[in-house]
Simulated scan of single mutants.
Amino acid sequence: MAKNVTSSMWKSPAGAAALLLLITIIYFIVAEFPEEDTKKGTEGRIQVDAPAEGLIPVELIRTIDGDTIKIRYQGKEQNVRYLLIDTPETNHPRLGKQPFGDQAKERNRELLSNGEVAVEFDIGQRTDKYGRLLAYVYVSGENVQEKLLEEGLARVGYVYPPSTRHLDRFEQAEKRAKDKGIGIWSIADYATDRGFDSEKAEHAWPFANCRELRAVYPQGVKRGHPAYLERLDGDRDGMACEAS
């Protein structure tokens, strides 16, 4: 019966045109809804956790702050903004110097001085509106962002899909620091979804001078302690208000 109907449709121009239209519609339906590929990550598909180009060795020029560095890449000096993290400011024109900003910068510098530096790009845009490269940064194969998060010197921030390859790992590292209450997490409500609230930090550090601080901490406090302030560390040895 179907064979007879098809044969009869071909016998007239209108019927042939209708049959061709039907075949075309079926073709586009199949193209739009292909059979589900259950072999995710096989050849021809991009894995979420697979490097776009792998690690690219670069020359470190200098550390700018906790989440920005300058490197030599493709023959020229360029700034790199770390993907998926945010650290307190060290010299912002409006926000000034924020608590733990210097610590994050120093730890970033320290980490990068201990091996070969490399960057890894994600599948999203490679530069921001300031022309900085957006990348994951490694030293001797270890991810620097994850280390800063683990030590409570950075928060997860500036998440813009599809550049989210290491987001799960970073959030887990951030949670471990939160649970320990270290670094930026030692000050209640200091780290927020929008950045860092310096007013919260000021209320958390009520010591106006070393006399007040030593009344609570007789031996002084080390850099990294919530009560540490650089202005109370006169000799810049990393110990504020130490007993003489």
Rank of each mutant, 00 (worst) to 15 (best):
T24R: 12
V137H: 00
K200P: 02
F170S: 03
G220F: 03
A16N: 12
L149R: 13
V216A: 11
D49T: 07
V58P: 02
S12I: 06
L95T: 04
I26D: 10
D168N: 13
D67Q: 01
P93R: 09
Q78K: 10
D197P: 02
S186E: 05
E199L: 07
A177G: 13
I85A: 01
T38V: 14
D168A: 15
P161N: 08
P93M: 10
R155A: 15
N4E: 14
F28T: 14
A50I: 05
A201S: 15
D233E: 11
A154F: 09
I71P: 00
E151V: 08
A135D: 00
G41C: 03
I85Q: 01
E77H: 05
D102P: 07
F28D: 06
K76G: 04
S186T: 04
F196S: 00
R81I: 04
K3L: 09
R165T: 02
E242Y: 13
H166A: 01
Y160H: 15
A227R: 08
P218F: 10
A208R: 15
V30K: 14
D193I: 03
G234I: 10
V139K: 01
R231H: 10
A188G: 05
V30R: 14
P99M: 08
K147V: 12
R236L: 07
A243R: 13
E32D: 10
A154S: 14
E32F: 08
G96A: 09
E35C: 02
R155V: 10
G183R: 01
V137Q: 00
K222S: 12
R109Q: 11
A18D: 09
V119T: 06
E32K: 11
I29P: 01
M239S: 07
F28M: 14
I182F: 08
G141M: 12
K200H: 05
G220A: 04
E106D: 15
G183P: 03
I71G: 00
Q145L: 07
Y73K: 02
V221D: 07
W205V: 06
Y138D: 07
P51V: 01
V119R: 01
R176G: 10
A227W: 07
M1S: 14
Q103D: 07
D37F: 01
D86C: 05
R94M: 12
T164I: 15
D168E: 14
Q103H: 11
Y136W: 02
A154D: 12
T42F: 07
I26F: 10
K3M: 08
E106T: 06
V48K: 13
P93F: 08
I46K: 06
V159R: 12
L21G: 08
